[in-house]
Design a protein around this nucleic acid. Structure first.
Length: 480
RNA sequence: GGCCCCAUCGUCUAGCGGUUAGGACACCAGGUUCUCAUCCUGGCAGCCAGAGUUCGAUUCUCUGUGGGGUCACCA
C-alpha cells in the first residue's frame, strides 16, 4: 500500500499536545508502510501568524523525534512546503473553479455580511452566506473587478445534494449540502483559506491518508465538494478524536491547564513517555501491552483501530508512564536529562549519590527539587514537625533519644552509611526503643519530613556536620 | 439553536449475538521495609435509558437522554 501522510500545522502559536498526538499517528502510519511523512506549513493566516512560528514547529517536532521526509528545510519533489510560497498555485486553481462554474467572486462588504448574520441570528435561522453574489453576470463581475472592488472567491455549494464520505474510524458520513456554507476559498488579501489550500496541496502532494482532528469533520463536506469540482480522487479520511480536559468537560484548552507540547517538556516529562501515552490513548494493542517503544508502535498502528470517542487527558496515567520511563533510564542519561531541572543551589558534587536515592521516586524530572531540597537547604521545624517528632512518645524520651544519637554519631570517624547504620541500630537495640517511633523521630529531626529516602543513606549525604546541627536544632525546638 | 460525531468500571481500553464482561491507571487492603517510593498479592468498581429484531442482546435497529465538535475573508 502506498502511504503518504502529512501534518499541516499553522504557525500561530505553541503547538498543542493534541496536534502532537496526531502528528505521532501520521508519522507512525507512514513509517509502518514505508511511505512518506510530510510536514507542510499552513501559513495562510497572516493576521494570527507569530514570529518564529515556522521554526518553532520544526523545533518541537524534533524534540519529540518526529522527523519528516518532505517539508521545510528538507525539500522534496512536491515543494515548496510552505503555503505562502504557493500562492500562485491556489490562485490558478481558484480561477479554474470559477471557469468551471464551481466558484464565484463575491464583492459583499464585511459590513453587509455582518448584517446578514445578525438578521439570521435574530430569526434563529442557521447563519449562512445568503448567496447575494452567487449569480452575478460575468459582465458585472468583470466591471467590479476592473473597478478594483475588494472581493473574495466563494465555493458554489450545490443545492440539496447529499454529500457522502467515508471516515476510516466512523464509517460513512452523510451531510446535506444545504447545511454547508458557500465557503470563502480565496481571501481578499490574495491568500487562500485553509479549505482551498488543504485540498489543493493534499492532492498535489499525493497525500493518501488524511489523519486530522475530529473538529474537521464538519468541514470535510466542503473539501469533498472541492475534490469533486476538480475531479480529483479522494484521499482516505480518518478523523482522530480530540482530547477532553482532565475534568471531562470540553476540548482540552489553555483555560484548564497548560496544553502546549513544549510545556510538557518544561514540566519534566520525557518525550518518549508523552508519546507512549498518546499511543495508548484511544488505541490498544491486542495483547494489552501499554508500555512500548516507537518501533513496537510502528509495527502495529492502524488508524482504523483508533477509538471513535473523545478521550479524557488523564494526567495520572501520564505520570505513571513517565515514572516508568525515568526508572528505565541509565544513570548517565538521567543525570544529563535532569540537569536543567536542578535548582541553582543544588550541590552538583552530590548529584550522583542523591540520584541513586531518589530515581525511583521521580514521576517527573521536575520533582527533583521538591524531593531533595532537605539535602542541601536549611530545614524549618513547625507545629506539624512537633507532632511527628513526638508521635508515640513524649518530650523527655525524644530528647534523650536525640542526645544519645548525637553522641553516637559524633564518634563516627568514617562517615558512611554502614557505620551510621551500625551506630544507630545498636543504640536503638540496646535501649530497646521502639523501632518505628525512633527511626521516624530521627527522620523528621534530620530532614523535617516524614517521607524520605532510606534514613542512613540520607544521613550520610547530608553529612556529619549538618546532621549534628539538625539534631541540635530539634533539641532546641522541642525544649521551647 | 441547526448540522455532524460519540456512549463498557472515576479514567483509558478489550469485546465484534451466548463471556463468571478481560486488562491498565487511579483508589483501597495486605506483603517486603526505618518512612516514602519501587516491587509482589488481593480488592472495590462498568455495559446511559426505553422500545424493537432474535431462542438469546453489552454487541444489531430506532427513539430518548447525556457528552463532544462545528457553524469566520482562523486553522
Amino acid at each position: 500500500m502506498k502511504v503518504r501522510t502529512r501534518m499541516a500545522p499553522s504557525p500561530t502559536g505553541d503547538m498543542h499536545v493534541g496536534s502532537l498526538a496526531i502528528t505521532l499517528k501520521n508519522y507512525a502510519f507512514a513509517r509502518r508502510h514505508h511511505g512518506q511523512f510530510i510536514l507542510r506549513i499552513e501559513d495562510t493566516d497572516k493576521v494570527r501568524e507569530v514570529d518564529d512560528g515556522i521554526e518553532a514547529i520544526q523545533r518541537i517536532l524534533k524534540q519529540y523525534s518526529l522527523d519528516w521526509d518532505e517539508g521545510p528545510n528538507v525539500g522534496g519533489k512536491f515543494g515548496p512546503y510552505i503555503q505562502s510560497q504557493r500562492l500562485a498555485i491556489y490562485q490558478e486553481k481558484a480561477e479554474e473553479l470559477i471557469a468551471k462554474g464551481k466558484a464565484y467572486h463575491c464583492f459583499c462588504t464585511r459590513e453587509r455580511l455582518q448584517e446578514v448574520k445578525e438578521k439570521q441570528q435574530a430569526e434563529k435561522t442557521p447563519p449562512k452566506y445568503d448567496g447575494f453574489c452567487r449569480n452575478l453576470s460575468s459582465e458585472e463581475v468583470k466591471k467590479k473587478l476592473d473597478q478594483k472592488i475588494e472581493s473574495v472567491i466563494r465555493l458554489k455549494v450545490p443545492e440539496n445534494k447529499e454529500i457522502k464520505f467515508i471516515d476510516l474510524i466512523r464509517g460513512e458520513i452523510v451531510v446535506n449540502s444545504d447545511t454547508v456554507n458557500d465557503q470563502v476559498l480565496m481571501k481578499s488579501d490574495g491568500y487562500p483559506t485553509y479549505h482551498l489550500a488543504v485540498v489543493v496541496d493534499d492532492h498535489l502532494m499525493e497525500i493518501t491518508h488524511i489523519m486530522r482532528g475530529e473538529e474537521w469533520i464538519s468541514s470535510t463536506p466542503k473539501h469533498i465538494l472541492l475534490y469533486e469540482a476538480f475531479d480529483w480522487e479522494l484521499p482516505i479520511f480518518a478523523h482522530i478524536p480530540i482530547f477532553l480536559n482532565p475534568d471531562g468537560k470540553g476540548k482540552m484548552s489553555k483555560r484548564k491547564g497548560t496544553v502546549s507540547a513544549q510545556s510538557f517538556l518544561d514540566r519534566g516529562y520525557l518525550p518518549e513517555a508523552l508519546l507512549n501515552f498518546f499511543m495508548i490513548l484511544g488505541w490498544a494493542r491486542p495483547d494489552d501491552v501499554e508500555i512500548m517503544s516507537m518501533v513496537d508502535y510502528i509495527e502495529r498502528f492502524d488508524p482504523a483501530d483508533v477509538s471513535s470517542k473523545s478521550v479524557v487527558f488523564d494526567i495520572k496515567k501520564l505520570d505513571w508512564i513517565n515514572g516508568i520511563y525515568i526508572r528505565k533510564l541509565e544513570s548517565s542519561e538521567l543525570k544529563q536529562k535532569i540537569e536543567k531541572f536542578l535548582p541553582n543551589d543544588f550541590p552538583k558534587d552530590k548529584l550522583d549519590s542523591i540520584l541513586i536515592l531518589v530515581r525511583e521516586r521521580l514521576e517527573r524530572l521536575s520533582d527533583i527539587e521538591e524531593l531533595t531540597s532537605f539535602f542541601y537547604r536549611d530545614i524549618q521545624l513547625h507545629d506539624d514537625a512537633k507532632k511527628m517528632l513526638l508521635k508515640k512518645s513524649n518530650v523527655e524520651e525524644v530528647l534523650t533519644q536525640i542526645e544519645q544519637t548525637k553522641s553516637q554519631l559524633l564518634e563516627i570517624e568514617d562517615w558512611n552509611t554502614a557505620n551510621i547504620e551500625e551506630a544507630v541500630r545498636k543504640l536503638q537495640e540496646n535501649k530497646e526503643w521502639k523501632k518505628n517511633q525512633f527511626f521516624m523521630m530521627l527522620r523528621v529531626a534530620v530532614t523535617g519530613r516524614k517521607a524520605t529516602p532510606p534514613l542512613f543513606e540520607t544521613i550520610e549525604i547530608i553529612g556529619k556536620k549538618f546532621t549534628l546541627e539538625r539534631l541540635n536544632q530539634a533539641i532546641k525546638f522541642l525544649s521551647n
